[in-house]
Structures are given as C-alpha cells and as structure tokens.
Amino acid sequence: MEVVSEARSHGGRQLVCRHASAATACEMTFSLYLPPQADAGAVPLVTYLSGLTCTHANVTDKGEYRAACAELGLAFLAPDTSPRGEGIADEDGWDIGLGAGFYVDATQQPWSANYRMWRYVTDELPSLVAAEFPLDMARQAITGHSMGGHGALTVALHQPDRFRSVSAFAPIVAPAQVPWGEKAFSRYLGPDRASWRAHDAVALIKDGARVPELLVDVGDADPFLERELKPELLEPACADAGIALTLRRQPGYDHSYYFISTFMADHLRWHAERLR
C-alpha cells in the first residue's frame, strides 16, 4: 500500500492511498480520514460508498465530513466506485462500466474479470485498512449516496452483525425495478432476475434480511427521485419487516454534494450514537 497524499485537517489526518487489489485485479485508490483521537488508539469506522461517475475524491473534496468526524472521533473511509486502468472493460454511457461498479461481483463476461466490487468493499479493503491503521473494526457503520446508497443498504442487510448502523443519501432502493439498476444488473449479473434480488434492498427485506433501523435522506427536488430512486418502495417493505425507517424528504434539495454535505454531520452524529 502506498500513501499518495496526506494532509492535516481538524487535527486529524486526511490520507489518499493506493494499492494493488486482488479482488479487482488492478490498482485501487481510496481515501481515509483519521480523526485526532486515532493518535491515542483505535477509533470506530464509517465507510462511505459513492455514486455513479464518482471516485474516492468526490466525497473527500466536497462531503464536508472532517469537522464532524474530528468532533465525534470517527474514521471515514471512501473507496472508489469501480476498477480502473488499461484493459478494464467499459461501455458507452456514464451509468455502466468505469465509475459504475454497483457494488456487485459481476458474473458475466467481460465484466467478471475485474468488476468484483462486492468482494472489494466487504472483504479486501476492510482487511487492508484494519491491518494498517488504528481502527476499531468491532464498531463499524456504513453509508453512501445514490448507487452507493444502494451499496450501503445491501451490504448492511447482508452483514447486520458487522455494521452497527446504516444510512443513505438518495439511495437506489430497488435497483431491479429501475433503469439504472436494470442496465447494470443485466450486464454484470446476467438475465436471470432472481439473481438480482441479492443486490436489491427492497427485495432483500421482503426475502427476510433485517437491520434494526435505517436513516435515509432524499431531496424532493432530486431529478432522479421518481424514475430511479423510488424511496416510497422502501417504506412498506420496512413497515412490514418491522424495520424502523426514518425517511426524510428534504424540501428544495437535489442530488448533488450540496445536498449531501448539508446533512452529512446529521448522519455522522446518528452513527456515532450507535457506535458508542
């Protein structure tokens, strides 16, 4: 692992790191903020999964999380959204291929050679950062935006004992039912829609997956709200499953990092309460 850059911020350390990934068979880059409390011992970890077209840099540069993380003593991990580099499969369109890994392990060619983002974010990257940095891996939370909100929800639903809390900003709650997800899943996972259910939060909840509670924020001026995000599908699924859902529709907010940065500290404080 190589530390590409390091900067002091709010008394902590903002790192950008690069390493050779066995999961994706290419070099991967991630960012990690270590709060000042990490100088004295292991701190809880919040993992943030980014959305379509993003790298680790979008939330690192625009997410406005460091002040809250320093106050609360939280580390903040932001991986990339897909494999990258020469020879990595891609396709025309910003919603498939590079920057659009959808946090699944692809089973279909040519994607299966590198697009193993599920394995990367649930296994390889956590193991790497746990070995290299002062992180308390018994106290983990996960969150994400849009495609990354989908990833955060599905990862937590598969591993409820690992994550003490999960939240999301404008998540794709039912990717198997919307154009973005249908396009990605048909390429990465193939035509059998039954196999898609393992990566669809609403389907997972209907099939018996459980977490105690969810915090979800969406902007009511989000241009993708009705066609791609469909948060209204999450409400009856959670109600039927007994999952305490806090779904906040924020008036006037869109899909951008202006929205995310506005409510980032709220989410981090919510996670911190559950990571004590």
Rank of each mutant, 00 (worst) to 15 (best):
167 S>K: 01
56 H>Q: 14
212 P>E: 13
28 M>C: 13
5 S>T: 14
150 H>A: 15
203 A>L: 02
38 A>K: 11
40 A>C: 02
56 H>I: 00
242 G>M: 11
119 R>T: 15
14 Q>A: 14
196 W>V: 00
226 E>I: 09
73 G>P: 06
112 S>W: 03
99 G>V: 08
75 A>P: 01
34 L>T: 08
270 W>H: 12
124 E>G: 03
65 Y>D: 05
37 Q>Y: 08
157 L>N: 10
272 A>H: 06
21 S>V: 02
83 P>R: 07
204 L>K: 03
238 C>A: 08
221 A>L: 01
165 S>D: 06
269 R>G: 08
84 R>D: 03
160 P>R: 05
270 W>A: 06
200 D>S: 03
83 P>E: 08
42 A>F: 04
275 L>Q: 06
137 M>K: 06
238 C>E: 07
236 P>I: 03
186 S>N: 08
231 P>C: 06
187 R>M: 05
162 R>L: 05
100 A>L: 02
144 G>S: 06
263 F>T: 08
60 T>L: 14
156 A>H: 04
115 Y>C: 12
275 L>S: 03
51 G>K: 08
275 L>F: 05
32 L>I: 04
43 V>K: 03
112 S>G: 00
272 A>P: 03
102 F>G: 03
245 L>T: 05
167 S>F: 01
38 A>W: 10
165 S>N: 04
181 G>A: 10
258 Y>S: 10
64 E>H: 13
90 D>L: 04
110 P>F: 08
157 L>H: 03
21 S>E: 11
10 H>Q: 13
41 G>P: 08
21 S>P: 09
61 D>P: 00
65 Y>R: 05
223 P>C: 12
12 G>C: 05
76 F>M: 13
151 G>L: 08
138 A>T: 15
97 G>E: 09
44 P>S: 04
55 T>D: 06
63 G>W: 04
116 R>Y: 00
266 D>H: 07
217 D>I: 00
168 A>R: 02
26 C>A: 15
140 Q>I: 00
161 D>I: 00
155 V>T: 09
57 A>I: 11
240 D>C: 00
189 L>P: 07
137 M>C: 07
170 A>S: 14
67 A>D: 15
114 N>D: 01
120 Y>H: 15
230 K>F: 00
140 Q>P: 01
95 D>V: 01
29 T>K: 13
275 L>W: 07
152 A>M: 06
7 A>V: 00
269 R>E: 14
